[in-house]
Every structure is written in C-alpha cells, then in structure tokens.
Amino acid sequence: MAKEFYLGDIVEMKKVHPCGSKEWEIVRVGADIKIKCLKCERIVMIPRSKFEKRVKKIIKQNIPE
C-alpha cells in the first residue's frame, strides 16, 4: 500500500543532504514529487517511486480537510 503525501508535509529522508539536513517539505505532489530542503531551501524533484523508497518517516503531516 502506498503512503499518502500532501502539500506541506515535513518528511525525514534516509540520506543526509550535503548541507547537513534530513528534513524536507513537500511542495508539489503528482507522478513526481518536488521537495524543498528546510535548511538550505534547495528544491529537488524526484519520481514518486524513488521518493517513497527514500523517505524514512513523516515528521508533520498536513492533511487537507
């Protein structure tokens, strides 16, 4: 079963970003997921399948009502 991800979710990735942070904010959801590093604000776009494998946990979920 695939996890549900929403705009504004804060996730922790398995690998550390070169700037030293593991925390990312989801800024776009679709076939590709765009995430923004919370420390250096770099934006990266990766396919959903790779994203789901690389995410460790959801720190803060932003569920729409």
Rank of each mutant, 00 (worst) to 15 (best):
K34E: 15
D32I: 07
K57G: 06
F5I: 15
G30W: 03
I63E: 04
Y6W: 15
K56R: 15
R54F: 00
K15V: 07
I59N: 06
N62Y: 02
V44P: 01
I26W: 02
A31Q: 11
I35N: 04
R48G: 00
C40N: 14
A31T: 14
R48A: 08
M45T: 15
F51R: 06
G20V: 07
R28V: 07
V27C: 13
I58L: 05
K36D: 10
E41S: 07
C19H: 13
V16I: 15
M13Q: 08
V55K: 09
V55Q: 12
G8L: 05
R28L: 14
V55F: 04
G8F: 06
G20F: 00
F5E: 10
E25H: 02
A2V: 10
G30P: 12
P64M: 09
A2I: 03
K3P: 09
E4L: 11
V55P: 10
V27D: 01
P18Y: 01
V29E: 15
R42G: 00
W24I: 08
I26M: 07
M13T: 14
E65L: 11
E52T: 13
D9H: 07
R54Y: 02
K36L: 04
E4P: 03
K22G: 01
K39F: 01
K60Y: 00
D32M: 09
V44C: 02
L7G: 05
V27T: 14
G30T: 12
C40L: 07
I59T: 08
F51D: 04
I59F: 01
V55Y: 09
K15W: 02
A31G: 12
F51E: 08
K22F: 05
V27Q: 05
D9R: 13
V11E: 02
R54L: 08
L7D: 03
G20D: 11
I10R: 09
C19G: 08
C37Y: 11
V29T: 12
K36Y: 03
C40A: 13
E52N: 07
P64H: 06
E23R: 03
K36I: 02
K53F: 00
E52I: 13
A2C: 05
E4K: 15
V27L: 05
C19N: 10
K39I: 01
P18I: 05
L7T: 08
E25D: 01
I63T: 14
K36C: 04
K60N: 06
P18K: 14
D9Q: 10
K22T: 08
S49F: 13
I43F: 01
K53E: 14
C19P: 15
N62R: 10
K56D: 12
C37L: 04
D32W: 09
Y6A: 02
S21V: 07
C40T: 07
I35E: 04
R42A: 06
I46Y: 09
I43K: 15
I35W: 00
K15H: 11
Y6D: 02
K39R: 09
G8Y: 11
L7A: 02
I33N: 12
I33A: 06
K60F: 02
E23G: 00
G8E: 06
I10W: 02
E52Y: 05
V11F: 04
V27K: 11
V44L: 15
Y6M: 11
K39M: 00
K56S: 13
K56C: 00
R28G: 05
